[in-house]
Design a protein around this nucleic acid. Structure first.
Length: 558
RNA sequence: UGGGGGAUCGUCCAACGGUAGGACUGCGGACUCUGACUCCGCCAAUACAGGUUCGAAUCCUGUUCCCCCAGCCA
């Protein structure tokens, strides 16, 4: 599924279009989305998915979901499962195109042997430290390994014994024989295989040697007939190695690697290492914490798949470093929810109002629309009685200019109900306002009067007698600075926002929300968009605020 | 100081030798039973210096700044 407004003008689209025009790959287009199952997918992965599945869709090709699972140390099945869930949730169908790099281990081994046979790879018995020490630096060439000129027979024998489990981890590696003096460090005899006596999430204990990314990736692409291998900028330096592998192994086709810039979002981090740390250290409740930029976190927060796709398409594909403002993302989800979210009334920080001229034993109901702009969404019933709750922030004893809400002597409208005027303010010993006394105008039933007088302020409210208790969780950015990693002496602890989660335990929402199901979304009028958190139960309602409504008020009131 | 990339409104994207345009943000205004939505308007950019050309964001030369690379991670 791809949005109708998907841009088809990125530089990658232009390259693909040109390749097709040139008759390359017999006019076919095959891409792949290759996550490593070592963590959950995040919004940056969504950008990659939209690109890869999008290109395949736009040119009538196909896109593989391929697990890049060559490092058993870090990968596990929970991640594999979560990734599949997230890809499908985002709206991409990989039926018949689900693969693993580890599916190709046999073929990869054969190709490694082919390299050895041709004198293009050798078994190196240096330790990891020794290899590092002889690699040279950015400005100094490396030195050849003493094992560089091992003969083919010996290499073949050693490599076979590596596979059979004869050696301990780290005893040997297989290296490509390229150029220890190459200015590109990736070409200084890169490691192709390492020994890991470690069981693998997909292949179990079949292997004790595992191929490296640089060897595996181009070959997996070739096996799958990938025509355009799209990856992020940090792999640009690896392209010569990618091409070297394809040129020196008898592959069925020649994929082309093209790089684009990765996505950075203000006030969060996108590196899996950091996200893993946040989870492991308990700074968040898990990978699906609504503050996380992960797809599972955003889903729980209330983001819709289409809002995320729209965002990715809007952000575009270039080679320029991107740093996107949060407002761009928030705008996308507001746009979506504005259309589809049923309206409800709820109160975050309840302040009691007693409507003194409304009879104690009376109550009544109003039938109100679920969406003022979309009558097909139906209606619901709102109950009213003598005691109601409004939000604390909707009253000020000494209001500044342009405060349209309640104040002593002021008349406001209770949404869909009545006009009320504040007649008395009741405070506790500390001077805090604890209750308001008001009177209502019976002629304003439904929210308007025959005299047509203007009432500027309209407040959300709930009937105290009928309201439901709820817990509402408000979210703010995880980090207090836009780009925590740009800070000198970066230690993310210094920039964690300790107000990223604000839990309001005593909120009141209208009775219509008694029936709820996880993930359901609403707009609480004037407050924002909310969704039902999985922590809810039949007798407990927990709401996450997905995003607040835009606020064009002159000053900052909350 | 090696190699690989990148520089267009505050942010993101477009313009592919011919009027620098759009989105987000910000600021005004209209409308409004959500200070929402919607609508209208405004502010705001070609890193710098030369050159080629009738004409340059685009081509050439030089400079500056930013990002990535020294895993048996991906």
């Amino acid at each position: 599924m791809v949005d109708p407004d998907t841009p088809t003008t990125s530089f990658i689209h232009q390259i693909v279009r040109a390749d097709i025009a040139d008759g390359k790959n017999a006019g076919t287009v095959v891409t792949r989305f290759p996550p490593e199952p070592n963590g959950y997918l995040h919004i940056g992965h969504a950008k990659s998915m939209c690109l890869n599945f999008g290109i395949a869709h736009d040119f009538g090709g196909s896109c593989f979901l391929r697990f890049d699972d060559t490092n058993p140390d870090k990968e596990n099945r929970e991640y594999v499962r979560a990734i599949q869930t997230d890809v499908r949730w985002l709206g991409f169908d990989y039926t018949g195109h689900l693969t693993h790099a580890s599916d190709y281990f046999d073929q990869l081994y054969v190709w490694a042997v082919e390299l050895i046979d041709h004198g293009k790879a050798y078994v190196c018995s240096l330790s990891a430290e020794e290899i590092r020490a002889t690699r040279g630096t950015l400005t100094k060439p490396g030195e050849s390994s003493p094992y560089r000129d091992r003969n083919v027979t010996e290499n073949l024998d050693l490599f076979a014994r590596m596979r059979s489990g004869e050696f301990t981890d780290g005893a040997h590696v297989l290296r490509a024989k390229i150029d220890m003096a190459a200015p590109n460090i990736n070409l200084r005899d890169p490691t192709l295989y390492r020994i890991r006596h470690q069981s693998h999430q997909h292949t179990g204990d079949l292997w004790c040697i595992y191929p490296m990314y640089d060897f595996t990736h181009p070959l997996s692409d070739a096996i799958e007939g990938v025509t355009h291998s799209l990856c992020t900028l940090e792999f640009e330096d690896h392209r010569p190695l990618y091409d070297w592998i394809l040129e020196n192994v008898s592959v069925p086709c020649r994929p082309r690697q093209i790089e684009f810039s990765r996505l950075s979002l203000d006030h969060t981090v996108m590196s899996k290492r950091l996200l893993t740390t946040l989870v492991d250290a308990g700074h968040v409740s898990g990978w699906d914490d609504p503050r996380m930029p992960t797809l599972s976190g955003m889903r729980r927060r209330g983001y819709t798949p289409s809002s995320i796709r729209t965002f990715c398409n809007r952000v575009g594909i270039t080679k320029k470093d991107q740093r996107i403002e949060l407002s761009a993302l928030e705008n996308c989800i507001r746009e979506d929810l504005e259309r589809i979210a049923p309206r409800r009334l709820g109160v975050l920080r309840p302040l009691k109002i007693v409507v003194e001229n409304y009879p104690e034993d009376q109550s009544e109901e109003f039938t109100v629309p679920n969406h003022p702009g979309d009558s097909t969404m139906g209606t619901r019933t709102l109950a009213f009685c003598r005691e109601i709750w409004i939000d604390e922030s909707d009253f000020m004893e000494h209001p500044p200019a342009k405060f349209f809400r309640l104040a002593p002597g002021r008349e406001v409208r209770l949404r869909y109900a009545y006009y009320i005027t504040c007649s008395r303010v009741i405070k506790d010993n500390s001077g805090r306002v604890t209750e308001l006394r008001c009177h209502y105008d019976p002629d304003s039933r439904g929210g308007g009067t025959a005299d047509g007088r203007k009432v500027k302020g309209t407040l959300h409210w709930v009937s105290a007698r009928h309201a439901l208790d709820a817990e509402i969780r408000l979210y703010n950015p995880l980090f207090s600075v836009a780009d925590p990693r740009a800070e000198t002496d970066f230690d993310f602890h210094d920039f964690l926002n300790n107000e990223s989660l604000v839990t309001l335990g005593k909120t009141k929402v209208e009775a219509a929300m008694e029936q709820h199901s996880t993930g359901e979304c609403f707009q609480l009028e004037r407050l924002g968009y909310f969704c039902v958190d999985p922590d809810s139960a039949t007798d407990r309602l927990v709401l996450n605020r997905t995003v607040a409504l835009r606020d064009s008020r002159p000053k900052t009131h909350t």
